[in-house]
């Protein structure tokens, strides 16, 4: 005499919860050979497939975001760039406004180009911060320096690189570049 199947199991011993997960999540069977030949499993799978079909129909439904969504996102990003502050170069023909984010990118590239440094991209704050009023900008950088490098010289090099790059590419006046060495590490180019 065949012993009764455990609770939650089919007479063949297959776990009904596992079968449900397989059908609902539409994953491959754990034991395809058994399922293909077992009448209990085949019946259960057919029943479950039919029962959960509205959920699958919902999953198959095509979802189309509103057509203007992307433009709204991009407009907000543009506004955001300016609301973070901007430097302005006034001229006879009109003003040139440069978002602080643009200055930050230039400063970051300039600092990246100096051997023996790595920008400290902490989760709490950005590694580069820029303040700007009119033509004057102040840049603050958090850096990880190569272990063994003379830090004052490194700071001076970075300061010079940032000042030059920002001045040449934007025409702005870099009033100060504050450098914070927040960590030293081996394996950075220049160590």
């Amino acid at each position: 005499m065949t012993p009764p199947a455990p609770a939650g199991a089919l007479p063949c011993g297959a776990d009904l919860e596992e079968l449900t997960a397989q059908v609902v999540e539409r994953t491959a069977p754990i034991d395809p050979e058994h399922q293909a030949g077992c009448p209990y499993c085949r019946a259960a799978i057919a029943e479950l497939s039919s029962l959960w079909s509205p959920v699958h129909a919902l999953a198959e439904e095509e979802v189309t975001p509103p057509s203007e969504l992307v433009n709204r996102v991009l407009d907000q990003i543009q506004e955001l760039d300016y609301s973070g502050g901007r430097a302005v170069i006034a001229a006879d023909g009109g003003d040139t406004a440069i978002a602080v984010r643009v200055v930050a990118v230039i400063a970051r590239k300039a600092a990246d180009g100096v051997n023996g440094t790595l920008l400290a991209m902490s989760r709490a704050s950005a590694a580069v911060e820029v303040g700007a009023i009119g033509r004057s900008v102040v840049v603050r950088l958090d850096l990880i320096a190569a272990l063994g490098v003379h830090l004052p010289s490194l700071s001076a090099q970075i300061r010079r690189a940032v000042q030059e790059h920002v001045a040449v590419l934007t025409g702005l006046s870099v009033v100060a570049v504050d450098v914070s060495v927040v960590e030293v590490a081996e394996g950075i180019s220049g160590s």
Binding site: G8, L16, E17, L19, T20, A44, E47, L48, S50, L51, W52, S53, P54, V55, A57, L58, E61
Partner: peptide, 19 residues
């Protein structure tokens, strides 16, 4: 929870109800 027992209703529901 007994899979299969309660789920019969799902087949009768439209996708809105499922959502």
């Amino acid at each position: 929870y007994h899979p299969g027992a309660d789920t019969e209703a799902i087949a009768r529901e439209g996708t809105d109800r499922v959502m």
